[in-house]
Nucleic acid binder design. Structure first.
Lengths: 214, 214
DNA sequence: ACCTGAACACCGTTCAAGT
DNA sequence: ACCTGAACACCGTTCAAGT
């Protein structure tokens, strides 16, 4: 009892972040108010302003934590099959989509939090996203070093992969895809990443290799 | 004068949709209030409820119009090069990203409007999205008929393409990509669609054709 | 330093009442 | 039928005041 009376929570800042995440997971990003979060923590509705400039700043902090979680998931997926870079890359993609689906509200927040007020995302959010992106870039560079992948700019290749899994995750989360049952998501992301790896045109037709270019 | 006094606007419903789109384009989706829209049209803040169940219903109507515009843009892009299905498919992808960038606020609304209250998007919104998606599916089926493309389920192939352009558009709009100047977007979407067409692994290595599969 | 409570200018939504 | 104006229960944010 004595400990808890000390002007609240020891670390109100972190408590607010965790409460926000909990509430967002229970409902969705848009319908969580800053006053909700304060109530949840047991503090007045003005108290958060001692730790965050405004509601957006709190949401950005939650988003940054999300990118760190995603980064760790992707790294773990990469470590599972370090021997085969192409499998590794595909596993990263599958883990990416899996994270988005199982942390839907959090994931949405990660890419839309700042937009309430600011036009550009804050620097630390972009930084956290870049760190995550680098897991992809590194896997692609390893594959290139082994001669398994085109020697294009690895950032370009990684952007294609990121776009694919990000778009797929968004479409699934937004209910735009019929096959939306949680189990089929893995097979779906497996098929999609496979298509990007191999290409969707007929591969073994030497005579048409240049038709696409120009 | 006489005409405009007739209990407002003739078609208040359509006037609200257009005013909402204008305001959303000027600011962004989140910061536009239903009362703003009513003010813009010159009507009381309760008047919209004669035509829409709630704010979400109005936003969904705006989103449906967005999908119709996008559908028409994609069809136009497909008609430009009807002779070569692969070029056609790539042009559709480029036009898709171009639409998203040039109608950023509208595009965001199309994929996030309903989420304020509902968990699943309303049926007419999904229908409008499906019509747009079919432009992609049809282009892929034509390419398949000419033997230019894998004979996988065309919906699967179209989903990969949709995921790619949707993800790319989202990342660009969210400021997550360094190369975000408007001119380079076309070359960026050209490169990305090209990668999906051709694949990102080294194409001409017959001995490793089965490594990716399991 | 850190938090509170009242206050301000807004919301979305409802509903009796007007024409 | 279609719209209004007041009212309700909320917001995000600010700020003097308390400990």
């Amino acid at each position: 009892m004595a400990k808890r009376k000390t002007y609240h929570h020891g670390d109100l800042r972190q408590a607010l972040i965790e409460a926000a995440l909990t509430l967002i997971s229970e409902k969705n990003v848009e319908s969580v108010s800053l006053r909700d979060v304060a109530r949840r923590v047991g503090v007045s509705h003005a108290a958060p302003y001692r730790h965050f400039a405004d509601k957006d700043a709190l949401l950005v902090a939650v988003a940054v934590e999300g990118f760190q979680l995603l980064h760790d998931d992707l790294e773990a997926a990469a470590q599972n099959t370090p021997d085969h870079p192409l499998q590794q890359l595909q596993n990263i993609g599958i883990a990416y989509v899996h994270f988005a689906i199982t942390h839907a509200a959090h994931y949405h927040l990660m890419f839309g939090a700042y937009r309430t007020t600011a036009l550009q995302p804050p620097a630390n959010l972009v930084q956290a996203a870049d760190n995550t992106f680098d897991v992809l870039v590194n896997a692609i560079m390893r594959a290139q070093q082994l001669g398994l992948m085109r020697s294009d700019d690895p950032k370009q290749l990684a952007l294609a992969a990121w776009s694919l899994v990000h778009g797929l995750a968004m479409l699934v989360m937004d209910g735009q895809i019929p096959e939306f049952n949680p189990e089929s998501v893995t097979s779906l992301s497996t098929a999609m990443t496979q298509l990007l790896l191999e290409g969707i045109v007929i591969p073994s037709t030497p005579s048409m290799g240049s038709i696409i270019n120009e």
